[in-house]
Amino acid sequence: MNIFRLTGDLSHLAAIIILLLKIWKTRSCAGISGKSQLLFALVFTTRYLDLFTSFISLYNTSMKLIYVACSYATVYLIYMKFKATYDGNHDTFRVEFLVVPVGGLSFLVNHDFSPLEILWTFSIYLESVAILPQLFMISKTGEAETITTHYLFFLGLYRALYLINWIWRYYFEGFFDLIAVVAGVVQTILYCDFFYLYVTKVLKGKKLSLPA
């Protein structure tokens, strides 16, 4: 565990908590893509099946349980408790265009052709693109609430910090996982445009809105 990995995990946790609190405090999930949140719940479910097969550390187990629980809580708030505030008309990204190719790819390109490993690979590939429905929704409405941009910032920062973690681990531990690294690079690149808007607009106190 190095500092980049730890801050990456904490950044991920911050993103998840920010989103949950935003929905809970405002009693509304307006502007949030339920589809992205469903995909993230699927990502955590398929990745953390190893909770049943191997124990790594108390930290590892607790974080996994927190991520899974929070992602299901978020989906519950969007599709059940605050369903009336869910902006389904703008959440129109076709998720099958992500899930089907990603499913196919995880069968073709993986470290080991076993059920758990394929599901882990699926989750890594799916996570890299799971934010697309949310970004699509923002591009459609042309704006995002500031709190939503904070959520996106920490969610993007998490994978960027993991990239530094992987460079660190390559040099100091000889650790290298090509699948995770390539997917992590793709995932981080998807946030670049947003990072630019976040720094040039949101951090200067302006609302994130896109030109019409």
């Binding site: 995990d9 790594i56 590892n60 470290h111 490993e117 882990w120 993991y162 973690n165 090509l178 995770a180």
Partner: peptide, 10 residues
């Protein structure tokens, strides 16, 4: 070494 299992990262 592909570090297949266990997965120590989240």
């Amino acid at each position: 070494d592909l570090n297949i299992n266990p997965k120590d990262e989240l």
